[in-house]
């Protein structure tokens, strides 16, 4: 029973990790409707920045978030403005996908050029200290990730629901033309949304870097999982991303323990496929977001 609890808690912690990484993608993929394969690489860039700042300035890794979030915001906004936006007019949405794949390849190799293939480690500054809560152990850093993830979910949900900017973003997401007629600058909203999405990745990077080794390829692992989370939760649903991440985290941990580590990817992706086909709106998505399924 204790073991089961531990596996469950591991899964929830993993879910927190996936939430914090995927929440930015919910905005980008779920609202701007851009499939951004470079999402993982934004995380990678953020983690390297966190490493450089932490080591260079000798500050606590969490402090770097004040620099990371704005830096990643700019990076994302630039990507949207100069890569994605010119392609919105392209007749073929596939072209966007290729552009972001190219961006991803370029960023991975840029990191390889600058940092080498070696892993780097951001100092953990005590975040790796395990806490014993009853029969289970968790790391302080993991708890911080989980808490931040939940706060970010609530914050974003309030932002989208209660502020004018947030409503404008949702309006653009639902009907670009209609929103433009209402006087909303759709392009600016997209740049803003993309920027906020990548700024979330900046926050994630500051939280993740002290716990996981950074390498040029770290993003590739996260990006597929993040897509799974977003689709599972329901396109554009912020609470859905949290739920999806928790489901994936727990399934990942459970299958890793009870089925076998070599098959857990098959279980996660298999579950993703089944949900995509049987319940394309995701766990919390509404039917109105089903632009991806033919009638």
């Amino acid at each position: 029973m204790d073991t089961f609890l531990q596996v469950l808690v591991n899964g929830i912690m993993l879910g927190g990790l996936f939430t914090i990484v995927a929440i930015g993608l919910t905005l980008i993929f779920g609202i701007v409707k851009v499939i951004n394969f470079a999402h993982g690489e934004f995380l990678m860039v953020g983690m390297y920045l966190a490493y450089l700042l932490t080591v260079g300035l000798g500050v606590h890794p969490y402090v770097t978030v004040v620099a990371l979030a704005p830096a990643l915001f700019v990076l994302g906004a630039l990507a949207q403005r100069f890569i994605i936006q010119p392609l919105l007019a392209a007749r073929d949405e596939h072209v966007q996908i290729f552009a972001t794949v190219g961006l991803s390849t370029a960023l991975i190799n840029l990191a390889l050029m600058v940092f080498g293939a070696d892993i780097v480690n951001t100092p953990s500054s005590g975040l790796r200290t395990p806490l014993e809560i009853g029969p289970v152990r968790v790391l302080i850093g993991q708890i911080c990730i989980l808490v931040t993830a939940v706060v970010a979910v609530i914050g974003l949900q309030l932002f989208l629901g209660r502020t004018n900017t947030g409503r404008a973003i949702r309006a653009v997401a639902q009907n670009r033309t209609a929103a433009q007629l209402m006087g909303i600058n759709a392009n600016r909203m997209h740049i803003l949304t993309f920027g906020i999405g990548t700024a979330c990745v900046g926050v994630a990077a500051a939280l993740v870097a002290p716990l996981y080794p950074t390498s040029p390829n770290i993003g590739t692992y996260f990006v597929l999982t993040a897509f799974v989370v977003v689709v599972l939760g329901g396109l554009g649903s912020i609470p859905g991303a949290l739920l999806g991440a928790m489901v994936i985290g727990v399934v990942d941990a459970m299958s890793g323990f009870y089925i076998g580590s070599d098959l857990r990817e098959a279980v996660v992706f298999g579950m993703f496929l089944v949900i995509l086909i049987l319940r394309p709106s995701g766990l919390l998505g509404s039917r109105s977001t089903l632009s991806h399924v033919s009638p």
Binding site: F29, I35, E93, H94, I97, F227, V231, F272, L276, I277, P280, S291, H292, V293, S294
Partner: peptide, 8 residues
């Protein structure tokens, strides 16, 4: 599934 979803 349409577009990016088929790809995924």
């Amino acid at each position: 599934l349409r577009g990016p979803f088929f790809a995924l």
